[in-house]
């Protein structure tokens, strides 16, 4: 499986400068009351500066676990990682806790689905942003306050000066999400991790935040890893898409190819079952069944039990990543003929 991946890195990696993010054979497992849960089972990817990678998957696919692993945010005592994560030349999995604290916020930062979790309810938005700036950049309080104001203006919060003095609960959902983006960008990170940041928002607000994120990403030249379950959101923001299932990337490629020329039956099913009005009166195509239990994964292809094209050989060996095109790959034996 790894052999197949190595091929794809070789031609590009030699010419271009080293990518910002390199993840090799990452696995994450949790010890729980019911045994070991293998949430991520061998993920490889690279991400260049200024690109947006969207990890698309359903609940339990391991997409958020992968994202949190990029900052080692899982509870250390219950989690074990193997493989390699390198961000801007730093080996995340072997950093000490202190070094990790420095990387968080300044090199990598994160935004969440629920902004209330990112803010401390007893401090104002302005205080919290300024505090982060002071801690990471060691500037004076005045300079930090000024930067906080600039940041709120950058995320297009109306009457920003007044909002600096607001407490998190005094803001509406969309404003809080913008404030959290400002907090995450306060130290100009190279990599922004976004965990379904628009899922809880209303339709009209979701689009505003997506457009804002895209614009900021382009202006600041950051790389973004954006996790979502929504194909439509992915189409709006991604450069590259990785479709995740049972802890593995089962299809990766440029967003247009993954949506337009999908290779994997799961991606196909996901697209077919994404409801849109044109299907009125027709039966929706569905993927039968539910995602597998991560405590006892089936052997071979994890999607085999739900796949309409399943063959006996699918259940026998692990399916490698096949590359019909250099940048578009999928784990499905049907590509191999």
């Amino acid at each position: 499986m790894t052999a197949a991946l190595r091929q794809d890195q070789s031609p590009v990696a030699e010419a271009a400068p080293a990518p910002l993010v390199t993840v090799e054979n990452l696995t994450v497992s949790f010890k729980g009351g019911d045994g070991v849960i293998k949430a991520v089972n061998g993920v490889d990817f690279t991400l260049e500066r200024g690109k947006v990678l969207t990890i698309l998957g359903e609940s339990g696919s391991g997409k958020s676990v992968t994202l949190k692993a990029m900052m080692r945010l899982h509870p250390p005592r219950k989690t074990s990682y193997t493989g390699r994560i390198a961000i801007g030349g730093r080996e995340i999995l072997s950093l000490s806790d202190r070094e990790l604290g420095q990387v968080r916020g300044s090199v990598v930062s994160m935004i969440f689905q629920e902004p209330m979790l990112a803010f401390d309810p007893v401090y104002t938005i302005g205080q919290q942003i300024a505090e982060t700036v002071v801690r990471h950049e060691g500037v004076s309080r005045q300079a930090a306050d000024k930067r906080a104001l600039e940041l709120l203006e950058m995320v297009q919060i109306p009457s920003a000066a007044r909002r600096l003095k607001a407490y998190p609960h005094e803001m509406s959902g969309g404003m809080r999400q913008r404030a959290m983006i400002a907090l995450a960008l306060s130290c100009r990170p190279d990599l922004l991790l976004a965990d379904e940041p628009t899922t809880a928002l209303d339709a009209t607000v979701q689009m505003q935040v997506l457009i804002l994120l895209r614009q900021l990403q382009r202006e600041m030249g950051m790389a973004v890893i954006f996790v979502t379950h929504d194909m439509g959101v992915a189409a709006e923001i991604a450069d590259e898409v990785a479709v995740m299932y049972a802890g593995r990337f089962i299809e990766t490629g440029p967003v247009g190819d993954v949506i337009g020329r999908r290779l994997h039956p799961y991606t196909e099913g996901l697209l077919a079952s994404t409801v849109h009005g044109a299907q009125r009166g027709q039966r929706l195509e569905t993927i039968a069944g539910a995602p597998p239990n991560l405590a006892k994964l089936p052997s071979g292809c994890a999607f085999a039990p739900r796949c309409r094209y399943v063959e006996p050989r699918c259940r026998e060996t692990e399916v490698p990543l096949f590359h019909p095109k250099p940048d578009h790959a999928a784990r499905c034996l049907r590509i191999d003929r």
């Binding site: 569905t286 039968a288 069944g289 539910a290 597998p292 239990n293 039990p305």
Partner: peptide
């Protein structure tokens, strides 16, 4: 019959 396939892989 049409809804039952949803059942099959539910371990």
């Amino acid at each position: 019959e049409t809804t039952l396939p949803g059942l099959v892989p539910d371990v």
